[in-house]
């Protein structure tokens, strides 16, 4: 098969959904794995509020339940990214990508700040709207080619999926992966407990890289 990601190293069959590993997807998978382990191991940062004039420094405490919830979401996000990196089925990829989207909402939404929650809500709206092109494109791939498996689609000499359908798929992934926009604005500078927000940016980056491979392969 002519794959953009290099020669296929291994197959892992789950019924109709066959996971295939190429050097490209393996690299992305390891990246997601390393960052998930870092999230499990790391302690949340504490933010300092310095009041000028009053000569006062306040350490913002992150509540234990909030920290545990956000760590859970960050780990789930890491697992979802790993799945999205390896899966060899278009619809399964769409599902993993929307899982990344909803866990990103969870990471940001747990913060007790009106501003951050507003950003999380706006991001959630975009992620929810993003499922429309994502699932629509996957269904159109099935209808126009008769299969959802990327391995089968890659066997064709020329690309059988129409260009506009590919654009629809990329648009859906863009909607799900828009978190860093919000994370950068709402989270890094205003909310305590920074390490988990790395997962937002990293997972978005990874699903963007993967969707390019998917679009070039099918």
């Amino acid at each position: 098969m002519s794959s953009v990601g290099g020669a296929t190293l291994a197959h892992l069959p789950f019924g109709d959904i066959v996971i295939y590993i190429t050097p490209f997807t393996l690299t992305l998978f390891l990246l997601a794995l390393v960052f998930t382990i870092l999230v499990i191991a790391s302690r949340p940062e504490r933010q300092l509020d310095i009041t000028f004039g009053a000569d006062r420094i306040i350490t913002k405490e992150t509540g234990l339940t909030e920290m545990r919830f956000r760590r859970f979401m960050a780990i789930a996000c890491g697992l979802a990214s790993m799945g999205a990196m390896l899966t060899g089925d278009v619809f399964d990829f769409a599902l993993f990508t929307s899982l990344v989207g909803i866990t990103n909402v969870g990471i940001v939404a747990a913060v007790k700040s009106r501003h951050v929650q507003n950003a999380a809500f706006q991001y959630g709206l975009v992620a929810m709207a993003g499922t429309v092109p994502l699932f629509g494109a996957a269904a159109m791939v099935a209808a126009t080619t008769g299969t959802l498996s990327m391995l089968e689609l890659a066997k064709e000499a020329t690309s059988v999926v129409p260009f506009a359908v590919k654009a629809f798929l990329v648009l859906g992934v863009m909607g799900e992966g828009m978190a860093p926009f919000y994370a950068a604005k709402a989270e890094m500078f205003r909310a305590p407990g920074a390490p988990y927000v790395i997962m937002c940016s990293l997972s978005s980056l990874l699903i963007f890289l993967r969707v390019i491979e998917v679009v070039l392969t099918v």
Partner: peptide, 10 residues
């Protein structure tokens, strides 16, 4: 499920 989470967030 996204509607469930978002409406609670709202």
């Amino acid at each position: 499920s996204e509607l469930l989470a978002l409406s609670q967030l709202y």
